[in-house]
Design a protein around this nucleic acid. Structure first.
Lengths: 218, 218
DNA sequence: TTGTGGATATAAGTATGCCTGTATACGCAC
DNA sequence: GTGCGTATACAGGCATACTTATATCCACAA
């Protein structure tokens, strides 16, 4: 496993992380020459990075108007969560029967890390890690890719969600229930818990966004 | 509805079309300066176009090795069809209850066009048009986007499929059955037909690819 | 005073040129 | 004869410079 080979990839990774953990807020304009000066490179690799992030749905680019961190209204959040429910429940269903014990243990360790982690910015990535570990044996690489893409697109909003202590505790309880069902190889129960888990997340997030007024577009 | 605003978009559209209808075969290396000369532009917009197509899964780019039309083995075709089944049956289920009569008529016209069309290269696009018309009222833009992306990624293989007259007749019969079920607002029957339709397509395509040896990687 | 048109400024799109990395081939040494 | 190392060539990444399009502001006219 080697690191990013091009400047564009490095820039994309830094920007993705900064957007995911909230350092760069939604709606922030991302000017090419501004970023070029900050990173110490020319505009070309920054352009490549922005287009990469656009493909991931994290930034939106309008020709001649430039790029900005993609704003999401509550409708888009709902869409993403509906897709996550569809994609992840299918991945879980496929994965559970042949999931290796090592992956189950790995998932459990991630849950412990979430409990121990005090840095808000890490929660999104850990949450993603837990979920993906359970889907590892689904046998469909493209499906896993889509799931990861949707996690990345919504990570910065999930972070808002997890900042709420009540939700975080409830979420972790559901995570452990989900893991237990996977250990019992009870695919039906597991997908049922997952769907419920995602529905709660969606509802909590949508109401949080509506009242915080984060949904207004530029 | 205005056309592509940048050269990169135009180039991407032309290449996508050429790859989809088989003018450019799988595995063909896509050199930047070569394409730049052919199109009469510099390498920059061609680079952008190639990255766009890479994000769509149509070409694969390796740093320093360049871009080539993505090769797909039978396993990847199976993955794409499994995803299509998942995504499209969900979209259909959501769409059928509120599908406008105009869209149903539009879908029927596309079916007639498929029967009348003699140009092999157009079948893939028409097939896509029929399916997307039925999903139009699903209410989830991202879901529609994913479905279209998977059609684009597999279009050039679907073309192979539709070149088989037997399959094409069977496919059209299933299309009309599917449309009839939609007109009756029978969502369960419609999704059932769709799943069967896609399974047949997948099996036919996988066996065709295996025997034609199109699956070997470079 | 308001609306429209033109000019200017700003930022992205595009072109060209250079540099770096990788792959392949050839030669030398073991 | 084979294997490894070096050199050369080719292709893409990156930088710099130029063009184009759009948005905003000011001026002039109605």
């Amino acid at each position: 496993m080697q690191g990013p080979r091009t400047v564009a990839e490095q820039v994309a990774n830094v920007l993705r992380e900064a957007i995911a953990n909230g350092t760069i807020k939604a709606g922030t304009p991302l000017r090419q020459d501004e970023l070029a000066e900050q990173f110490g490179f020319s505009r070309m690799p920054i352009r490549d990075a922005l287009r990469q992030l656009e493909a991931e749905g994290i930034v939106s680019i309008h020709p001649t108007k430039g790029a900005q961190v993609a704003r999401m209204d509550s409708a888009e959040i709902s869409e993403i969560y509906a897709l996550r429910e569809l994609l992840e429940s299918e991945a879980l269903r496929l994965s559970v029967p042949s999931l290796a014990a090592a992956k189950l243990d790995e998932a459990e360790q991630v849950l412990d890390q979430i409990d121990a982690e005090r840095n808000v910015g890490r929660w999104g990535a850990l949450n993603k890690g837990f979920h993906l570990a359970l889907y590892d044996a689904c046998g469909n690489h493209r499906l896993l890719g889509l799931i990861e893409a949707h996690h990345n697109a919504a990570d910065r909003y999930v972070r808002i969600l997890l900042s709420n202590l009540d939700y975080r505790n409830r979420s972790q309880t559901e995570h452990r229930d989900l893991l237990a069902a996977c250990r019992r190889r009870d695919g039906d129960k597991a997908t049922s818990i997952l769907r419920q888990h995602l529905r709660e997340g969606s509802e909590t997030l949508v109401s949080a966004i509506k009242e915080d007024g984060l949904s207004r577009k530029s």
